Simulated assay, not measured.
Amino acid sequence: MRDARVKLVTTLAVYSIKGGVGKTTTAVNLAYLAAAEGLRTLVWDLDPQGAASFFFRIKPKVKGGGKALLRDQGALDAAIKGTDFERLDLLPADFSYRHLDLRLGQSDKPRRQLERLLKPLRREYDLLLLDCPPGISTLSENVFAVADALLVPLIPSTLSIRTLEQLDAFLREKMPRRAPQLLPFFSMVDETKALHRTIMQDAPRQDLQILQSPIPEIDEIERMGLHRMPITAYAASEMAVGSYRALWREVKLVLSGEW
Rank of each mutant, 00 (worst) to 15 (best):
T41A: 02
S107W: 10
K119Y: 02
F144W: 14
T41W: 01
K81W: 05
V254I: 14
L150A: 04
K63D: 14
L118C: 09
L255V: 08
H196G: 07
L42E: 07
R223I: 06
R123M: 08
M175F: 12
T26E: 00
K18D: 09
Q209R: 10
S160N: 14
K81A: 15
L159Q: 13
A68D: 09
K109N: 12
V143P: 03
E220R: 15
D84E: 07
L102M: 04
R223L: 12
L226V: 04
E165F: 05
I136L: 00
G82R: 15
K109L: 09
A240G: 11
D94P: 01
T163N: 00
E124G: 02
Q113R: 05
L195G: 14
K193F: 03
P230F: 06
G74V: 03
L182A: 07
R112T: 03
L247I: 02
D131F: 13
T163R: 00
V21K: 08
G74R: 00
L226N: 10
G20V: 04
S213I: 14
Y32R: 03
V251K: 09
T198Y: 11
L39H: 12
A194N: 10
P176N: 06
L76Y: 00
R2E: 04
L30P: 01
I231L: 05
I161S: 07
P134D: 06
G20D: 09
R249S: 05
E238S: 11
G19H: 02
G242F: 03
G82I: 13
L208G: 03
M224Q: 15
L253W: 15
K23A: 10
A194S: 15
L195T: 15
L39D: 08
W44M: 09
S213T: 13
L70P: 07
E165I: 12
L171F: 07
E250W: 11
K174W: 05
L159S: 15
A36E: 06
T25K: 03
A52W: 05
D190Q: 11
L114V: 01
Q212Y: 01
R205D: 11
L104P: 04
Y97W: 09
L150M: 00
P48V: 11
P176I: 07
S16F: 00
F85H: 10
P92V: 10
L226C: 06
E238A: 13
L226M: 12
I155D: 06
V9W: 08
F186Y: 06
I231A: 01
H227E: 14
K252V: 05
L226E: 14
